[in-house]
Design a protein around this nucleic acid. Structure first.
Lengths: 105, 105
DNA sequence: TAAGCAATTAACACAATAGTTAATTCTTTA
DNA sequence: TAAAGAATTAACTATTGTGTTAATTGCTTA
C-alpha cells in the first residue's frame, strides 16, 4: 500500500535528510552520497526506497542520474493522514488545512 | 530526537491503526488489543512506542489503563516536517522546465 | 488474604533493515 | 576499442524490530 511505503521511507533519518537536500535543488546520486559518511551503494539504496515510495523521481542524463523531490506525494500523504487521525474541530486542524491548501497548487 | 521517535512510531501499520482508533475515543489497553489479531503483550509494546514518541498518553484508572491521542504532537510534527521539506512551490516547477528543455535536445 | 482480571515485562525466535565490499551495467572519452 | 567514471546490484554481516509464550506487577473483590 502506498501509505505504508511512504511512512517506511520516512522512518530513516538519512532518508529524511536526502529529502531536505532535494527540497533545495535536484542533485546527482554522487552529489547526494558525497554529503553522507556512508558508502555510495548505501545511499543508492536509500534513494531506491524513496523512489519506490513516490517521494523522489530520477532521470539518467548521460553518465549521471539526477534525483529531485516529488513534493506532491509527500504533502498529500502526510496531510491526509493527519486529517484522518486528528479529531474534529481543533484549531491545529484548521491551520494545517490552510497550510496544505497553500502549498498544494 | 523527538522527530525520530515520531517517524519511527508511525512506520508501523498496527501503530497507525491504533492512532486511528484513538482518534475516535479513548480506549483501554485491552479494548485496543481486542481489535487486533496479535497478542496483548505485542499491542502493549506498540502502545509503549507510541507513548514514548509522545503520540498518545495513558492513565491508570483502577484496574484499567486508558489511552488517548495526543493529537497536538502528531499534527505539529507532520506539518512542520512537510513545511520544512516543501517550503516553496515555484522553484520545483522552474527546475522541471529546465529538465524538460534539456531532455528535448 | 486469596483469587482473579488487566496490563506489562522477560526471555526468546525469526524476519527485516542497514551497512559493508566486490562485481556489474551504462556512458563517456582517449 | 579500451579505459575510466558514475551508479546500481549482489553477496554478506550485524543490528534492530516484531511477534510469541511465560512470568510478574497492580488492582479489585469475595
Amino acid at each position: 500500500m502506498a501509505i505504508d511505503l511512504v511512512f517506511e521511507a520516512l522512518a530513516s533519518r538519512p532518508r529524511r535528510e536526502i529529502l531536505a537536500y532535494l527540497s533545495k535543488q535536484e542533485l546527482t546520486a554522487g552529489e547526494i552520497a558525497g554529503r553522507f559518511a556512508m558508502s555510495a551503494p548505501a545511499v543508492s539504496r536509500h534513494l531506491s526506497i524513496l523512489e519506490t515510495a513516490g517521494l523522489v523521481r530520477s532521470e539518467r542524463r548521460g553518465q549521471y542520474v539526477y534525483y529531485w523531490l516529488n513534493s506532491d506525494n509527500l504533502v498529500n500523504t502526510l496531510t491526509s493522514f493527519a486529517f484522518e487521525i486528528c479529531p474534529r474541530g481543533r484549531p491545529l486542524k484548521r491551520e494545517s488545512r490552510q497550510r496544505a491548501a497553500k502549498h498544494k497548487s
